[in-house]
Nucleic acid binder design. Structure first.
Lengths: 179, 179, 179, 179
DNA sequence: CATGAATGAGTCTTCATTCAT
DNA sequence: GATGAATGAAGACTCATTCAT
């Protein structure tokens, strides 16, 4: 129930007061602390849930059997699907609040796993030029995904679902300035 | 002088107290309000300065005469240079504090201008496939740039300067999963 | 059962929470109030028990038939024995928590009864000089006893049992600075 | 000014609210924290002051040149004088609040210094029988003094000044049950 | 009788902002 | 302009107590 106060975190970040969350859930201020040790505690619970859900979707989307490039579109579709179903989570996951250090790392690792895993194979097959650094690449990918998802989740009427997927896919396969 | 309290915003975001800023600048707490209406006021001043500086560098880096693709590397170099010289600014510009709405838009517009301007020409010349949406593209670009710059500015020893530039360039020209 | 939460009062005074006491007794928080009206109520119950026990021991130790001086050592022995068997009580009885006003008086009366009772006889027999005020004397005695007992009960290895008794006895019979 | 909120500590111990102290001193709640880091901070300041003052008086009262017994009455007079002038301090010094551990030790050491110092000489001269343990003795003395002072400071009309001094002196020189 | 979630008043502490000097 | 003490509205968290089950 109180977890529905996730809406508040999504909108205002960690700045929401415990009183507001409690009020929003129609319980007294003290009740909050019967369920969560801390404001940070609730935040962590919500965050963990979000990470788990996103993780699940990504796992389902990627198929190691397929080549790296073949996975690009399914992953993009998974991300857009996630943004559609859990707009709240998007804001929470990619916000940069003080305590998120751990989460941030978790999310990044999650998103970048596909990249890192694929890299070994790619280098072997000479698919990925060594000039592309794995660390920089994963930062770039996560930044790209996070921003687009946030932007789109904020107001999905900004672009058709398909356009977002298509653009993300093409960027990854051919670059932002394809030649 | 007080603006040197920019260091504090960079490190702690809007959470720094006016007292801390004043102390850091070796003036009394009240003096702050002789120069700035608000804490937000100072933040805006600093932010505007950062936007202006970044804007200047990007303008110098991009040459409309050259083709779009030819501008990719110079722009990447400009960004990395900016991150080198103004690590403070990076954190301030791309943090997502409540009041930054306006700034955020400004920064995005700034970074995306190159994309948008080029798009007209590109379409004309058939360089950019219409499946790539301009709005999604600019969000993706900004997200990518912002995250990589933040990540690198935090600790430049994470990757050699050249590697960052090279990777950013290649991603834009050929994608993250080049075929 | 819950009264075993006496250990908590002994260690932390009235600051222990009703929840802690209930938890320590392996019952639910609400159960506390099925047995006691108040936190103060439980405290009073425990306190009364302690007073009764101390009272019993002192009554057994003192023998009106003997002279006042002859009772000094038995009383000291009784006190030390009490401290040995009920270290918990010592802290509770002589702590100065807000609500203890009543208890405090009871304890003092208890300890001082021997003094007061004896005084009549003493004056008659000219044993006690009138310059020694009965009220001041009983305060002094209780203060002395209470502190020594608390100090010793906290860690009985601080001095051998016999030494405590002997010193207390000698002080009462001959003063702290005997001539 | 706020230190006049010493009266509150004396009456209610550490349980007084910072708001109450501030209100009592006719300042706003926040002002408290411009002068003291903590509630504990103020308590410590007051406590240190009290210890220093008591220490000063005891030093002036005792004269090492005189014999131990000759110092008993002057010390008693000093204590009573202190209780007269600083009734507030008495309650604070001898209360057993959680944080007072350090103070408690300081006070005890202070009061017991006379005992300990004298003991060496006494044993040498065979004045004090070895059956009287120095540790137990100092606890007893401090307990006696503290309680009598507290009791009398609470309401000095309970006994004439002279009676308190006389009784304390006689107890120390000849015991509570003189023979 | 037991339970334990809910309550909400109360407490400490912080901090943006003001203003008399 | 500079100062820095004062302000007081919040906010996080605690805990004695109640009450429906």
């Amino acid at each position: 129930l109180i977890e529905s106060g996730r809406a508040l975190f999504a909108e205002h970040g960690l700045r929401v007061t415990t009183h507001d969350i409690a009020a929003h859930a129609d319980v007294a201020a003290g009740t909050f602390y019967n369920h969560f040790k801390d404001k940070a505690d609730l935040f962590r619970v919500i965050t963990d849930e979000a990470v788990a859900e996103l993780s699940r979707r990504l796992r389902e989307a990627g198929d190691p059997e397929r080549g790296l490039r073949a996975n690009v579109r399914p992953v993009a579709e998974a991300l857009v699907g996630f943004a559609e179903d859990h707009a709240d989570f998007i804001h929470i996951l990619f916000s940069r609040e003080a305590t998120t250090a751990t989460t941030e790392a978790a999310v990044l690792d999650l998103l970048a796993q596909d990249v890192r895993q694929g890299r070994a194979a790619s280098i072997e097959r000479g698919e990925m030029p060594p000039e592309i650094d794995a660390m920089v690449l994963s930062q770039a990918l996560v930044g790209m995904w996070a921003r687009v998802m946030e932007w789109w989740a904020e107001d999905p009427s900004r672009a058709p679902r398909e356009t977002v997927i298509e653009t993300l896919t093409r960027i990854q396969l051919g670059g932002t300035h394809p030649g």
